[in-house]
């Protein structure tokens, strides 16, 4: 097995690693939120807003959103690299993906700290 450093030139290892770390973060968040929602009382508007009013939930959701942003970028870039061959079209689509990701990240912050 070849020893490689994670930092430094772009070997792709950093993205590979980020894909997995962000996946674990999102998986943990999913399990926690699912358990909270399943075990709780029926979800009314009050229950729903109370959940998102708590500090830990806001921060955890922000961590989820940040992980999703990075994870989705790596995944979408992989898909575009595999199927979209013309460089110009691919670049345009990659920019579009990045704009959507950046926009939704900002929107998420706005929703969480309204």
């Amino acid at each position: 097995m070849v020893e490689r450093v994670v930092t430094g030139a772009h070997y792709g290892l950093r993205d590979w690693l980020a894909q997995r770390i962000t996946a674990v973060i999102m998986a943990v968040y999913t399990v926690i939120v699912l358990v909270v929602l399943i075990n709780g009382v029926p979800i009314s508007y009050a229950v729903w807003t109370d959940l998102f009013a708590q500090g830990w939930m806001r921060v955890a959701t922000l961590l989820f959103a940040a992980s999703l942003a990075w994870h989705a970028w790596v995944g979408m870039r992989d898909i575009l690299m595999d199927y979209v061959k013309p460089a110009g079209v691919r670049l345009a689509l990659e920019v579009a993906v990045l704009l959507v990701i950046a926009g939704t990240l900002g929107w998420t912050v706005q929703i969480l700290w309204r």
């Binding site: 729903w48 989705a72 939704t104």
Partner: peptide, 17 residues
């Protein structure tokens, strides 16, 4: 899931607003 992000976020936004 990527394509659904905007839709899901819209529903979250409205449900909390």
């Amino acid at each position: 899931l990527f394509l659904a992000i905007v839709w899901m976020l819209y529903l979250l936004d409205r449900s909390l607003a």
